[in-house]
Nucleic acid binder design. Structure first.
Lengths: 191, 191
DNA sequence: TTGGCTTTAGTACCTGATACTAAAATCTAG
DNA sequence: CTAGATTTTAGTATCAGGTACTAAAGCCAA
């Protein structure tokens, strides 16, 4: 194997570690057919942390990401909220959320932002979506910032009617009408 | 600090590491006010791996989980598919997906299963949800197994009408009507 | 050939462990 | 109270996967 230049090797090193962060210096040195010291020097120059640190980063980032994706009270970031009236949330879309071919964000991410915001607006401990009528008006590309605005328009008993509009750069991409049902622990009215 | 019995300590050790998997033996020994060796013996008895292994586990598990949650083609497991006709997927719900107070699964997880299955049924490279009309008929508790059945009922140009029903133990908990729009790369009809 | 960049080599040291031996401390039953 | 068992502490050797540092080659080009 002929060895390519330092620049080429370092570029490939960055990419390789990006893809497979669990490789030791020793394994890397074999892949590039250079000594361990060379790999260490490269990492030093490129600011790539050691294996254990990389593993720790993967662990912590994904841990955090998982919390905010599956466990979060609300999908996106809540930037304004008037309980019982309206609310605004912002979601930064990423490549992960999109079809790799077209880079178009999967619909359920948009829905999730809308529904969770709608729930946040309701002035009650726990709400549950009963019905929703939604329309995606225009595809969203990964990287675009979704701004969701929710408004409580009507309350009938335990049913709460919430409208949500999502825009990207002022352009509307989604609208949804949700009927949220508040679950009464007591089984009756309060106050 | 008075030291409790071995059994109590070991029980608490298991719980602590479950909650905070990033603690070294040394930190653990301080928390329990025993020597490092005691912690090591405890870990050995309890089959708890060392810190680095634990970190690696967290990294790998969450990495995998993230892929299957945010990056997955389909939410849940596809168990049957007749392209252009119908399909079935199964989603095992977990506590993560639910409100901690009530243990009721957040609606968007159910929606995501339905929508992604609906898309899978369409016989096209990329589909995009245009409209959907959905209803949650009954709350789903964490741990319940959701069985989704999707059926393509009509095609009109690029619009595909898909109905999805989700059941738990034969009982219907969700129904949704989706209009999926197939994106034409060519901009025209094919064949 | 000389200077400069790149690569290799080697040593000392670090952390967070394992594996093992031995002794001290504590508890418990007779 | 005391012997025996259990539990805990202590210490040493070893390991992986590094850091930090020094020194020496190897190579390329003017």
């Amino acid at each position: 194997m002929k060895r390519p230049s330092k620049k080429v090797r370092q570029k490939e090193l960055v990419e390789l570690i990006e893809e497979q962060p669990f490789l030791t210096d020793e394994e890397l040195s074999k892949k590039f057919n250079v000594s361990i010291q060379t790999i260490r020097l490269d990492r030093l120059e490129l600011g790539i942390p050691e294996l254990r640190q990389r593993i720790k980063n993967v662990a912590k980032n994904n841990y955090k990401k998982l919390r905010t994706i599956v466990g979060a009270e609300i999908i996106g970031e809540l930037v304004d909220l008037n309980l019982g009236k309206n609310g605004i949330s912002i979601l930064e879309t990423t490549k992960d959320m999109a079809f790799s071919k077209t880079n178009i964000v999967r619909g359920h991410h948009i829905f999730s932002q809308a529904e969770s915001l709608a729930m946040a607006v309701i002035d009650a401990e726990v709400a549950l979506t009963g019905v929703s009528n939604i329309k995606y008006l225009s595809p969203v590309k990964a990287g675009e910032k979704l701004v969701a605005k929710a408004e409580l328009v009507r309350v009938r008993g335990n049913d709460h009617f919430v409208h949500v509009r999502i825009t990207v750069d002022q352009k509307q991409v989604f609208r949804g009408k949700f009927i949220l049902v508040v679950i009464d622990g007591d089984g009756g009215m309060e106050s």
